[in-house]
């Protein structure tokens, strides 16, 4: 399971970084979203992965998952979601006002795609 998680986070981050380095705003926003998913996963597993333990602390139960990363990741998810929405709106606004979806906000030069 550790391998699965590590591979998932690694693929998400590498895809996200690749997309973030693209020249147009839409792939960049997608890349940011993927990175924030990866970060959320990362924070979540910081409390270690374990299976079959009681979720709630009771008397006599001494094996339970760490609750704090779950609370932290909830905060991170909320902030990440809001920021993705904001950056989408900003990208759309930039496309309308500047007439281009390039991240530098400049019209395309001849013969260059990105």
């Amino acid at each position: 399971m550790e391998l699965l998680f590590a591979a998932t986070i690694g693929i998400l981050v590498s895809t996200g970084v690749y997309l973030m380095l693209r020249g147009r705003t839409f792939p960049v926003v997608l890349g940011l979203a993927l990175i924030s998913y990866a970060v959320n996963f990362f924070v979540f597993v910081m409390g270690r992965l374990d299976v079959g333990h009681a979720p709630i602390i009771r008397v006599g139960v001494d094996q339970y998952p760490d609750p704090l990363p779950q609370a932290l990741v909830l905060t991170a998810i909320v902030i990440g979601f809001a920021m993705t929405a904001f950056v989408l709106v900003l990208a759309v606004r930039a496309n309308i006002e500047l007439g281009t979806d390039h991240v530098d906000g400049m019209p395309q030069r001849e013969g260059r795609d990105e």
Binding site: M20, T25, V28, L32, I35, S36, A38, V39, N40, F42, V43, A76, I79, M83, F86, V87, L90, A91, R93, A94, E97, L98, V103, D104, G105
Partner: peptide, 20 residues
């Protein structure tokens, strides 16, 4: 708006690193 796009994206990436 031009500066804002750079600023927002740069700082969002920074926030991700902060959490890591």
């Amino acid at each position: 708006i031009r500066a804002g796009i750079h600023y927002v994206i740069f700082n969002l990436a920074g926030s991700g690193l902060f959490l890591i």
